[in-house]
Nucleic acid binder design. Structure first.
Lengths: 343, 343
DNA sequence: CTGAAAGCGCTTACAG
DNA sequence: CTGAAAGCGCTTACAG
């Protein structure tokens, strides 16, 4: 491996001067600059980043840690984060980890060698934060999961109000005259620590609350079916739900993929959507607008979620402003998958 | 910041011994181990990774670089790669970069501080490899893009035969009796260096070749429309295509998202799919099986693409085997979006 | 504008 | 089993 020492030797200058050239210092003669650059190019020299970091301890950019890498929803937030940080002239490095991995432990590790200015956590749950986040002192923001009750002064959070949004979706079904409404997806008992458990509980809670507010008791045994967060999961769960409760006229699915799977199942069983049964999803990622029928769903404001998170983080990095916890407005989007019940 | 020196002082042992404990060496007395571990815990000490790497130069795990992070297709390959490397007891770190970023430059950088055993490149194009890959000496594999004509001895590639697969999809349309077939998506003139340009050319070429083999001249002006690789892109392009060529009975879309968008457009214009017009996609990601109509498409063998890539890389890391370039079999999947033309 | 030297936090022969 | 010392590749006062 070729080092700064080699470059110094070959170019005839000292290590110090080579270092200055590498770091684009101005206090170097043009002759030196030119010669040294030439040698660097020739030798294809790359400074050892570890050695630089070791000395500098300079925070370079922002680390984004995404937990659970299968979701289009998270992907689109990430894209917006990239755009927004770019606008501020900041750059980010992104680290994807599995649904069962520990985002806080990952951040601690990353903190060692990348020395970021701050962290953005995308997805996951609050579990690991509660236990380990105290070890992180950099300004951070949790996007998508509420951290207000964790009480860390260097951790902001920006979320959609899952509970209110679920209520809203169910309210739409109710206003169309549906009284027999089922819920699909998530885990009712929210232990297990699996990712997604956080928001699925909130969505289920919001849906049930809205039903009960309207005098409808929700019977989990009969009208609820849990499932994986995928189209296949929705497909299978919808079949079970249909068997248990053939008289349902409306279904609230915890997310869009589940809704899509459910709709397909209903059609495969010769039920018309929305004629025989209405379905709402949750998330409003763009492509559901192309489904047939167009899916009625909740759109989370991806752009605002990303923008506010980035802006807040940068402000806190520069000015040490206190952490905030904010709910971003959502929107119900009409679709062809919801209509009034026939009878 | 608390360093190994502090731990040594507090524990009363030397830096060397502390280092041994940190690295789980066996040649340390139990008393020392215990005491030092205790101090480390108390002080919440984290070894500086940069300093460790600087000395060790030990390659830890495998770096995966994904270019263009919006595609479900790439996501699923990544997932398989994670599974496969996990089975071999290897761990990976994943780096997502934008469609316009330079994956090879990124790899060079990563090589500095993470010191991986090897690289897996996912997506992107061959452009940056041609120019800069000679600077990388680690065993690497390019997944999804053919590198056989680049001639690097440390770069394998595993790809779907895009050209043959496109021919196959078009052959199915032809065998149903379609003669007026349009093509949607990609960039016909393949300069510009934008990602995806590589495979879209191959797919278009394969489709056209099949048509001409069957005596049908393809008129790009009339029967082709380029577009972004998204449902929205497909939607808009389908509208233009329909206007230019209302007599088309079949459409080959360069990927599934485009196909989905096109189908939606046709339905919005009161054309039945497949009654009035048949549509095929490309990729066969799972969720298209839930669309209505189920999409006929090419399924790339995601699992094999990932498995072969990982196995090849590990073999070459351990035994220095030569790089290989392999095409992974694809499969045409029937769907409800293709039928014989009416007239 | 340039160079010699100290030091970043760690690991690892080497000697005991 | 333990410690003193050299060295990893770089940066940065300091002196000239």
């Amino acid at each position: 491996m070729i080092t700064i020492k080699d470059i110094a030797q070959i170019s005839g200058y000292s290590i110090s001067t080579v270092s200055r050239v590498i770091n684009n210092r101005t206090d170097v003669s043009d002759a030196a600059k030119e010669k040294i650059r030439e040698v660097i190019r020739e030798q294809n020299y790359q400074p050892n980043e570890n050695a630089r970091m070791l000395k500098q301890s300079i925070s370079t950019d922002i680390s984004v840690i995404v937990r659970g890498n299968r979701s289009i929803f998270l992907e689109s937030i990430l894209e917006e984060i990239q755009i927004r940080t770019g606008k501020h002239g900041e750059s980010i490095n992104v680290h994807f980890i599995g649904e069962t991995d520990d985002e806080v432990a990952t951040a601690i590790q990353i903190g060692q060698y990348l020395k970021p200015k701050g962290f953005i956590f995308l997805g996951g749950s609050a579990d690991h934060f509660r236990e380990e986040f105290s070890q992180i002192s950099l300004p951070s923001v949790l996007v998508t999961v509420d951290a207000s009750d964790l009480g860390f002064e260097n951790l902001s959070s920006f979320t959609t109000d899952d509970e209110a949004a679920a209520s809203c979706a169910v309210a739409r079904l109710l206003s169309q005259g549906h009284r027999r409404i089922g819920i699909l997806g998530g885990h009712r008992n929210d232990r297990g620590g699996r990712s997604g458990s956080g928001y699925s509980t909130l969505r289920i809670r919001g849906a049930v609350r809205e039903l009960e507010k309207n005098g409808i008791h929700f019977d989990f045994e009969r009208d609820y079916e849990s499932c994986a967060f995928s189209a296949e999961g929705g497909y299978q769960a919808a079949e079970k739900l249909r068997r248990k409760s053939p008289d349902l006229t409306g279904v609230f699915a915890i997310n869009d993929a589940i809704a899509i799977g459910a709709i397909r199942l209903f059609r495969d069983r010769d039920l018309e959507v929305p004629g025989d049964i209405s379905v709402t999803g949750f998330n409003g990622v763009d492509y559901v607008r192309y489904f047939n029928p167009r899916l009625a769903t909740i759109r989370q404001d991806v752009a605002m979620l990303a923008t506010k998170s980035v802006d807040d983080l940068l402000l806190r990095i520069s000015y040490g402003s206190p952490a905030v916890h904010e709910k971003i407005p959502f929107e119900y989007i009409d679709g062809e998958s919801v209509a009034s019940p026939r009878k």
